[in-house]
Design a binder for these strands. Structure first.
Lengths: 231, 231
DNA sequence: TAGTGGTCTAGACCACCTC
DNA sequence: AGGTGGTCTAGACCACTAC
């Protein structure tokens, strides 16, 4: 019964509601479907788990953007070629700062000592107003002095080439899948219970194979397909 | 209260239980904690969602391997190199049959007509009794006649080489992330709300680049890390 | 047939938010 | 103060699994 109610509700939401709308109260919905409030809650549980609804204690139950939550047609998927990651799409620079490298970054970039400084860039790449990739880039400050001043947005790799004469080449990529934290889910406009593709990769200087950029990218797992072909 | 019970239960499970153990019944646990069965169920819900427990209707509630469920240390992760996929680990042949190719398989293998026959193999690869990869392989029957008889388990690519003289080479791989369905979650002993890495790839004959095998592999996203390095 | 988890009902009280 | 979602209780019946 709760599954039937969930399907009914889901259809109505897709037809009649937009993101941000508030649902009638659980009490009202339970009355309307002629079931106990617990049963109605169980139905809403399903849609919360599916990423369609979001509960707010004391306020109500809100509709989340349904158009992104259900990219059922595979034609709506983005395809990202691994060799092109970090070089395409419109991008917004969210963070640009100099920080001390943590252990992961140090290991990837081969920095010898703790606490060495790196430039941290957080970039959100979008296609047609839809956020697709959220990427943290880490570059050693020793090699890219003043990068924070030189790069203000757009193509990072163009800036690297223009100001430092480097055209990084991908060395390796490691792919895992996780659930997003609140911040990532919000920026990528995805439900917290939908999977996230995480790609960590290292870019090196093609001349000397020295590490120049460590990137941790996050994709909406349901919206992006990574394609790997032999180089 | 249900959160307190969940934490208590989780601690006991990690200390005293191994994967495959059955928990006491909900009725017994509710009695023991002095709460209503619904409250106890709500606590168990948490651990099911966290991937610690798995319910089986009519049988009981089972403990899932906690060492894989919480791979907090990255050293406990499996690493699979994309070029090695399908050639390693111990494997169980779950399904071996001849079927009509669906559209996805036809497109990948370049089969001209609808309804052409392919061999479908479903293989579960495990490491130390832990299921890691679940793979569906599709091979054109025209090229691999009697494969169902020739291959009974073990290394598929050894069998292909021995009986058909082919050593397939990876042509491309496409990676997405999804939530598992019931069957996949059960076979991979993972929670339904944890992410799944899905890798679709095509293997070709190195001699003529003709498609010989289309593979759809599923990994536990939290237990496996795909590594990609230039060949 | 007995035991297990799955669902539904009915009612109560609490915590949170808005007015 | 009144409405919303969050939790707990009590009891019932069903569906599935094992013996």
């Amino acid at each position: 019964m709760y599954l039937r109610i969930a399907r009914t509700l889901e259809g109505e939401i897709r037809d009649q509601h937009n993101a941000g709308d508030w649902l009638p109260s659980e009490h009202a919905l339970a009355d309307r479907f002629g079931v106990n409030r617990h049963t109605l809650r169980r139905a809403v549980d399903e849609l919360v788990a599916a990423g369609v609804l979001q509960r707010r204690h004391g306020r109500g139950t809100m509709v989340i953007d349904p158009t992104i939550t259900y990219p059922i047609s595979s034609s709506t998927r983005f395809t990202a070629n691994l060799t092109d990651l970090g070089r395409q799409h419109t991008s917004d620079l969210l963070v640009s700062e100099t920080i001390s490298a943590n252990d992961d970054v140090r290991a990837a970039l081969g920095l010898p000592r703790r606490g060495m400084k790196v430039v941290h860039l957080m970039i959100l790449r979008s296609v047609d107003e839809t956020p697709v990739i959220l990427a943290d880039s880490y570059l050693p400050i020793a090699r890219f002095a003043n990068l924070v001043e030189h790069y203000r947005g757009g193509s990072l790799h163009s800036a690297l080439k223009q100001h430092y004469g480097v055209s990084p080449r991908r060395s390796w990529s490691r792919i895992t899948s996780e659930l997003p934290d609140d911040g990532d889910a919000s920026l990528l406009r995805m439900a917290r219970n939908r999977p996230l593709l995480r790609v960590r990769s290292l870019n090196v200087d093609p001349d000397d194979d020295g590490p120049v950029e460590y990137v941790c990218s996050r994709f909406r797992g349901d919206a992006v397909q990574l394609e790997i072909t032999p180089s």
